[in-house]
Design a protein around this nucleic acid. Structure first.
Lengths: 348, 348
DNA sequence: TTGAAAGCGGTACCAA
DNA sequence: TTGGTACCGCTTTCAA
């Protein structure tokens, strides 16, 4: 528990000089610097973070706010952030702000107001107006991951492009009956899912399949996708030949459901997701890979830049998802396609 | 950005009185207290955490160290911790210490030494000796979740009991050929898995089935369980009639593998896990439920107690897992049992 | 019951 | 290049 005064005394210099030597700011002769460093090492000196913060106004800590930590995407982003901060010697304070909880209100009203951080990373937050206002009030740099239009810098994957690409892949395989699954089961859609739905719709329209546009709501989890797919696939008459999951979790749930129902993937049903989830490989899932760790990492870089120079303009980092073809997608079965045409004809 | 001096001025009292009124320590008349509180509210006063820490020596922050944040159990524990800390108004600093990384060494050598926390919760850390030493050096209260013998307080589920119970359940259904899957694929077993293996072995021995004891190594993840099960189940001659997963992830992976191989669960193969993972329901998995959130919550309580009164003795909270029977387990098929007997006879 | 003042452990300005 | 010293913002004796 020795302080800088002890180090200074041991090195035979003043506190001021010791501080300069230790922080590397200001003039210190090589000789004294060495003495001070040695003394610090001998004493096992560790600066008091609160004293440093109080004196400098910097906390060397970054706040991370996210609504979940137990979903793959969020956990990955968190690990990416953590790893990058670690390299920079910065701490990370986590705020778990689940929508609609008192805890969340408390985080926005009390915790964030304490400003125990130099900057904030908001992951998939989708703040309400009141919350957004709070965020702004804090007056610290903010970077969002999967940001909506918060007027802050953000990094995210190009959702429109990703799902468009996914849909095109299915279209290229001859599919027409392609349904989009996701969006949650609550009253309103999550922004990400909304954007992805639009990507699907525009790809369908471009392909001249606007008449086939169909979406089916599901929680964006594996059990959610499973439950939705059981509903969606049970009736052979309305069963699509292909399915786009709002994310891999939904897609995986759908694959599990299909198998349970005796529907072969990909011969009876093609499935594509977005994420490249850790289980994607095991389920041979064709997907659009986004790299959440890199997004986390990029968010840190962006934020640190903003902290270093607050006048830096708001920046957007848009990453492109990459198509990974595994074996959950296949050319549409001619018979199925014919059947679909028939039923379409019947309807008409 | 108004400080306590502003509040004091506005309330027409001294800083000292304002501080007393705000923190609720020491004598303050009702009248002045009200005035101070009102002034603080009007100014939107928020105390500077670094100043408070510097003056009191308390950070109002808890450190959490865990090797993963993207595995179900850890994420759940983390959420439990977070929620409980939130209620208490405490911040949480996360340290993601992956075994064998430079980041981990850095955490132990630099980050933890900064002591930016009043206490530490270590989740499934399994520290090496050097690390353990560091932990002790810090001189702050520590509580472990899934603790090994660190000489600290800890909370965990009774692994031996859980797996014993799981095994007994299978034995009661007439199974003899029961294999334990887990332990990771690395050079050494994780402590938890080791304890669980022992529980399995002792249950088998008690049931007079010591000759049938068999374990199969697998990463404790869904893909890990899947891969292991594919190996284990492919050969019909060595295929067990029942399987105990070191955790639900392994068990779920095994179920997925079995289905892929055309092996019916539970008629051809009974599977039981430990956890009650969020996917357990969807896979109808019979399991021993442990409640990681509650473990996280209990860890916080324990830690806060220790912080409030450092002389408090080391305490162990051992939770009991509860058997939840779903439909991944069934009485052993008489034919399979007979076949197993035959092969045993052949071997003998 | 209240106030003055001395820290808490650093940083940084200014003078030497 | 170094040292003295005034803060940073709050808590906490101690005296009034």
């Amino acid at each position: 528990m020795s302080g800088i005064a002890d180090v200074a005394a041991r090195a035979g210099v003043s506190k001021a000089t010791a501080s300069r030597a230790l922080t590397g700011s200001g003039y210190v002769s090589e000789h004294t610097r060495a003495r001070v460093l040695a003394a610090a090492a001998e004493l096992g000196y560790v600066p008091s973070t609160s004293a440093v913060s109080l004196a400098t106004g910097r906390t060397n800590n970054i706040g991370v706010v996210m609504p979940y930590v137990n979903r793959w995407f969020f956990a990955e982003v968190l690990e990416g952030i953590q790893a990058t901060l670690l390299e920079r010697g910065l701490d990370l304070t986590l705020y778990d702000a689940k929508p609609g909880t008192v805890g969340r209100a408390q985080i926005f009203d009390d915790f964030l107001a304490r400003k125990r951080f130099d900057g904030l990373i908001a992951v998939g937050l989708e703040p309400e107006d009141r919350e957004l206002q709070r965020l702004v009030q804090i007056g610290r740099p903010i970077v969002s991951v999967v940001g909506s239009d918060e007027g802050t810098s953000y990094v995210s994957v190009d959702d429109d492009h990703a799902v468009r690409r996914a849909t095109e892949h299915l279209v290229a395989l001859g599919h027409h009956d392609i349904v989009f699954v996701g969006g949650g089961t609550g009253p309103h859609w999550a922004h990400v899912d909304r954007r992805r739905l639009l990507g699907y719709e525009s790809a369908m329209t471009t392909a001249g399949l606007s008449g086939h546009i169909r979406h089916f709501r599901s929680d964006v989890t594996i059990p959610g996708g499973y439950a939705a797919a059981v509903d969606l696939l049970s009736d052979a008459r309305t069963r699509p030949t292909a399915l786009v999951g709002a994310c891999d979790e939904v897609a995986i749930g759908a694959i599990v459901a299909a198998r349970r129902l005796g529907i072969q993937v990909p011969s009876d049903l093609s499935v594509v997701g977005v994420d490249d989830h850790e289980y994607a490989e095991m389920f041979s899932l064709t997907t659009l890979q986004q790299l959440p760790r890199q997004q986390g990492s990029a968010a840190v870089e962006l934020l640190l830049g903003q902290i270093a120079d607050p006048s830096r303009p708001t920046t957007i980092v848009q990453m492109q998802a990459r198509l990974i073809v595994r074996s959950s997608t296949a050319p549409v079965d001619p018979q199925l396609a014919a059947a679909a045409l028939d039923s379409a004809a019947t309807k008409a």
